[in-house]
Design a protein around this nucleic acid. Structure first.
Lengths: 250, 250
DNA sequence: CCAAAAGTGTTCGCGGTACACCCATGC
DNA sequence: GCATGGGTGTACCGCGAACACTTTTGG
């Protein structure tokens, strides 16, 4: 959790000096408020979540969601994006508030309420960075998670539930794919997220009938079999249709 | 956060003296955290929301959602239920976390992050109490809301959006009706919430085909036309089916 | 030429939708 | 007896589901 490290306050290059004790005084106890981000990415055969390894107690060496304290004049969404950028170099992803976790003893250090977010990332964009980063950052498949700090396992569960629920009636799956994708890739996405097999012909008929997935003139490359045609999601058209009461559904 | 707790200052061997009563001292500023509840009820022709009139600044005399500060060792859900009980005498309602609002200047008194909940109440149960309560409490139709404090209008909008989205694929509508209800009442509920007319025969066929709405031997009373048969929602059966992957849908 | 995946149509059955009249009751 | 809402059935159509073979390409 970035913000709890004093040296994160030295952003401006000043020498950091501890604030004078007693600087912030309130009549009633107040909780700390953090944001945590569940970043989900799609790999060949499963959904993976981005974790960082804690270097400090509590839960030293355990893996945790990227996140940290909300700053004094900062929007919650902005805090989530900032922590994501600072801790994992991830930017410009789909981000949505998930749920707020506030069980009194969820953090052994005291009352910490966390506003959890989930993000959908094109895993391929971040594979190399994450793997080579000096800090311990890694993508973990949902069914092989390492020991997790705090209640982060619960938060991840809720994120995957949300993804599963939402992917069927909102076009968020495309956030997990590169801008140009084959219909097979798209189908695999739904199969992985929904955990059931789909019929190829029916899937294509359904997807194309929505008119939001547009054929391009590009083909898959680097495969040793027949190259698949690539498609793109027409976001503009979707937004236009949305205003007319259109409902996306798979 | 440990270092921010006053009692940890004694780590260094100094004698720790308790802070003056009612004082809480932290190294970094902390927001206040509140809960606010959007209580929705179903009236003859519209959805109503329960509001209380503020007696103090800021927004003195404006109407606001019931809510208040989360206590130090209190679950968020418990805080929402407590405030609901304290401020409106409402208990035992369906309650679900909605969204957390944290725009820095949403409260003129300082940084206040609020975890919003929405509740579904059987309006008839609370009509009298609310009307006769010594404090100003009232049910307001969504399209005729009075001037609202803070960002409470936005919170209410999000609650009604959630209700509209959820009522179609979860059996939460029943929370708005008395335990025994006529199919016409149920249909009106869906028509009001979804804001569109439904065909009577098709609605009945659909609802009864789910097998979760059970005929009782009771009849409507106090109407000056033919009395309607009353039905009940079979929650036990629904929960059993849920575990088998059943999906409720209207 | 072989392995691998791309791409393509038709049939069937269920469920959603449209639609109108008689019935029971209270006044 | 009349006004008011309660209660009921059928026909059609569109969509989802099941299902298998040919084509293209790289190696």
């Amino acid at each position: 959790m970035a913000a709890e490290k004093p040296d994160k306050r030295s952003d401006k290059g000043e020498v950091w000096t501890p604030p004078p004790p007693g600087r912030h005084v309130y009549d009633y106890p107040r909780p700390s408020v953090t944001v945590d981000c569940v970043v989900l990415g799609l790999d060949a055969d499963d959904v993976k979540v981005l974790l960082i390894q804690r270097g400090v107690d509590p839960f030293k060496h355990a893996w945790a969601l990227p996140g940290g304290f909300v700053r004094d004049h900062e929007e919650l969404d902005a805090a989530a994006r900032r922590e994501l950028r600072e801790e994992t170099n991830i930017e410009d992803v789909y981000l949505e508030q998930l749920y707020t976790f506030g069980t009194p003893d969820r953090d052994p250090r005291g009352r910490v309420i966390t506003v959890a977010y989930y993000a959908l990332a094109k895993l391929s964009d971040y594979r190399v960075k994450a793997a080579t980063d000096a800090e311990n950052v890694g993508w973990y498949p949902l069914d092989r998670l390492p020991a997790l700090a705090f209640d982060h396992a619960e938060i991840i569960n809720r994120a995957i539930e949300r993804l599963r629920g939402k992917v069927r009636y909102a076009p968020i799956g495309f956030e997990l794919l590169p801008p140009r994708f084959s219909l097979t890739q798209l189908q695999r996405l739904y199969e992985i997220v929904l955990e059931r097999a789909l019929d190829k012909r029916n899937f294509r008929k359904k997807i194309l009938s929505l008119g939001l997935v547009i054929e391009t003139d590009e083909l898959e490359t680097g495969v040793r079999h027949r190259a698949a045609r690539l498609y793109r999601f027409d976001k503009k058209k979707y937004e236009r249709l949305l205003k007319q009461g259109f409902e996306f559904a798979i």
